[in-house]
Write a protein that binds this DNA or RNA. Sequence first.
DNA 1: CGCCTTGTTGCAAATGAATTGCAAACTGTG
DNA 2: CACAGTTTGCAATTCATTTGCAACAAGGCG
Lengths: 162, 162
Amino acid sequence: MKQPCALHPHPHSHAHRLIQPPLNELTEQLRRRDRKITAPRQAILEVLRRHQHPLTNREIHAALGESECDLATVYRNLNTLEQMGMVRRFDFGDGTARFELLAEGDDGHHHHLVCTRCSTVVEVDGCFSTEVEARLARTHGFTQITHRLEFFGLCPKCAAGA
Amino acid sequence: MKQPCALHPHPHSHAHRLIQPPLNELTEQLRRRDRKITAPRQAILEVLRRHQHPLTNREIHAALGESECDLATVYRNLNTLEQMGMVRRFDFGDGTARFELLAEGDDGHHHHLVCTRCSTVVEVDGCFSTEVEARLARTHGFTQITHRLEFFGLCPKCAAGA
DNA sequence: CGCCTTGTTGCAAATGAATTGCAAACTGTG
DNA sequence: CACAGTTTGCAATTCATTTGCAACAAGGCG
């Protein structure tokens, strides 16, 4: 059930889609899988909903403010939220995982363009998935093929101010 | 100076290109940048030359056998070798870097198909680079765009034996 | 509405990859 | 062959992430 995406077609891409799944729906999700709706959990989802960037565990923890909870708890929750498919994990290769809230039904398949200097992140929508993956499956006999793709570069601001 | 690669075109891909840059040429490279030709260095290159898989620091260290050297030395050397462009670093997202020897002039740009169970690695040649990168540059004003792309799946053996 | 089972949290300690300080050992050059 | 600049071994350190465990809170049930 991949998106009908294709990296080539659209010569444009918006920076961010709307991510606004009411907290209710989110807690709804939790309830469904007999997970408990705890304060840290809600606070974390709240933070993710506010920031539409991929955030690190540390950043999320820092953004909790009032509803502070242990950093380990943040780690644990992001792992379970990922398993539940409510959050997507990204790896920009700097040794720290980042997470983004997923809208329901969204498999979160998109990629990023990351500034190598300031870490600004731009969402890149569209991807060449299925076609190539199918070819790889045929050629090498692999199944359940997925991929990880991120772009890196120097953003306009950084290119200018240096 | 990218390869004229394109992920779509060729409906096939060979598992491994020939990697046989004589050790002489390698030490030659070292000499050129006034790097010293030390025993650990040679041993490490030797190991990389023997195995055509991306290897972790640990694996390389283990494969040294006779010419054992400190693990820290392996780390340090792979870093310098990478900077020198003699080796390419890969990140399969499992939190451990892997390295592959590069042939001279080869920018090492290719991707991998990694089995999520046994970590078997297949080289995937060809990639859709320039075209898309150029579009991203145009659209977002980024420069010096590069990308990281890896495929994951279940290899035939693992699919069968489980 | 309290009880009880089960998932959760906080805290501290443990892992594991990767890096670093430092003194000793080595390489290549003059 | 001696010297200057690298590199090495070793031990200690950093940093992200995980885990053991006891105290604790959420929600179903009677």
